[in-house]
Computed example of a mutant assay.
Amino acid sequence: MFAGTWRQLVGGLFIGELGGAYVLLSLIGMGHRNDDMQGTALFASGMFGMFTRIIALIIVMVVAEHWRTYFNPYTALVGYLLGFVFVVAGLYGFAKSRDTDS
């Protein structure tokens, strides 16, 4: 019984991290592809990216809720958001280590 709950927790983290990895890779990839865009095209690209990231979250949560025997929905959400925590922490560390004497 206890091993089953651990499997659900780890499964939820795993599926959430898969969705979060897609989001982070799409943020990085779209940022580099849209370097020369401006105005309405850049806005439309940003809106399309936002909707695909929301759809990724919805898919992760629906899968976790539908197969509750394998995935815990709460840890799936935590796994999804964990990537953002790592990015913010990395950006903070990068900003803190930059030389500001220039």
Rank of each mutant, 00 (worst) to 15 (best):
M1D: 14
A3S: 15
W6H: 15
W6I: 15
G11Q: 00
G12T: 05
G12D: 00
L13G: 07
F14Q: 02
F14M: 06
F14D: 01
G16F: 00
E17A: 09
L18K: 06
G20N: 05
G20F: 08
Y22R: 03
Y22Q: 07
L24F: 08
L25C: 09
S26A: 12
L27K: 02
I28D: 00
I28R: 08
M30K: 03
H32M: 08
H32K: 09
D35I: 06
D36Y: 04
D36L: 03
D36C: 07
D36Q: 09
Q38C: 00
Q38D: 11
Q38I: 03
T40A: 11
A41P: 00
A44Y: 10
S45P: 02
S45M: 08
S45W: 05
S45G: 09
G46E: 07
G46C: 05
G46H: 03
M47Q: 05
M47P: 00
F48M: 10
F48K: 10
G49T: 09
G49W: 00
G49V: 09
M50Q: 06
R53Q: 11
I54G: 06
I55N: 04
A56E: 09
L57M: 11
I58N: 10
M61A: 14
V63Q: 11
H66G: 09
R68T: 14
R68S: 15
R68C: 10
P73W: 00
Y74C: 09
A76V: 04
A76C: 06
A76S: 06
L77E: 04
V78M: 11
G79L: 04
G79Y: 01
L81H: 04
L81P: 01
G83N: 04
G83E: 07
G83I: 06
F86L: 13
V88A: 10
A89S: 11
A89E: 07
A89M: 13
L91Q: 12
Y92K: 10
Y92Q: 08
F94M: 13
K96Q: 13
K96H: 15
S97R: 11
D99S: 10
D99K: 07
T100W: 13
D101E: 11
S102W: 13
S102A: 07
